[in-house]
Simulated scan of single mutants.
Amino acid sequence: MELKGAVVLVTGANRGIGAAFVEQLKARGAAKIYAAARDASSVTADGVEPIALDVTDPVQITAAARIGGDVQILINNAGISTGTSLVAGDEMTIRREMETNFYGPLLMTRAFAPILRGNGGGAILNVVSALSWFTTPGAGAYAASKAAAWMLTDSTRLELASQGTHVVGVHMGLVDTDMAKGVPAPKISPAELAAASLDAIESGAQEVLGDEWATFVKAGLALNPAERYAQIASALTAA
């Protein structure tokens, strides 16, 4: 579908990838942009409609759906990374990561699917991660939540096909945002990732491999775990 003239809601729109989506949507002629963040006052972009939205809060999600009855495209971008391991990490922190990165986009999808149907089908774009396909020590909670978000994307694509809703999954390695600050490895810019993601909405593509790392990791999924993780470890060492 065309972005020009479309009505779009972006979660986590106040900074990083979310802010890049907002700027790209403005440049591509979106008619209205609902810029959602936990603190609406932190949304500083001009020409958008800020919405206070914590994607772990069902009451706020219901309120956002009431406000955004004209939405045609939902971009599930909000997420957190706590660096928590699954075996020794704090259970409540693990649950918080799952609530934000999996249940957040799930509840948003459930709330907005009827709205998208009523507005012609539209599209949903989920910002997932290459960490949906592998993990590293200390990233267990994040990787588990993103693996769940990957399957959420596939499942909702199938479930919403009959109403004409196009569902896109975006996978990438490191993006130059606060979340990846201090990690000494190559990063793509939020603008690059947002541009590739929005291109997919317009072209009808179902999946975005946002950088070389996402392409590399996905290519190894057919390997057995020992081979796959040896390959990933070698690449991480080389980086």
Rank of each mutant, 00 (worst) to 15 (best):
S81E: 06
T84A: 14
A111G: 11
L152I: 10
E49K: 09
T153A: 10
S234W: 15
N224V: 15
G138P: 05
A111N: 07
I51T: 02
G18Y: 01
V55E: 05
T136C: 12
Q72H: 11
A6K: 12
A37C: 10
N119Q: 08
A196N: 08
V8E: 02
L193F: 04
T237S: 14
K4P: 02
T100L: 04
T56E: 04
G220D: 11
G173F: 06
Y142A: 01
K146N: 08
L131R: 04
I67C: 03
K218V: 15
T109S: 14
A13T: 02
L106A: 11
G138F: 12
R117V: 07
T237F: 15
V170M: 03
M151Y: 15
V183M: 14
M1P: 08
L223S: 13
G182A: 03
A191H: 12
Q60D: 06
A230L: 15
L198K: 03
V43N: 01
S41Y: 00
N14Y: 02
N14F: 04
G12R: 03
D90W: 05
A147C: 05
E227M: 13
A149G: 07
L221A: 12
V71H: 05
E97N: 04
S85R: 10
K187W: 06
Q60I: 03
E91V: 13
G47E: 13
W150P: 00
G164K: 10
H166D: 10
K187G: 03
L131I: 05
L209A: 10
A37K: 03
A161C: 10
N224W: 14
L131V: 09
G16I: 01
A191I: 07
Q72D: 10
K32C: 00
L86A: 11
A185T: 00
V43T: 04
T215L: 13
A147Y: 10
A139P: 00
V175Y: 01
D46L: 08
V127K: 02
A195D: 12
P50I: 06
A148R: 06
T44D: 06
A161E: 15
V59P: 00
I124L: 09
A233R: 15
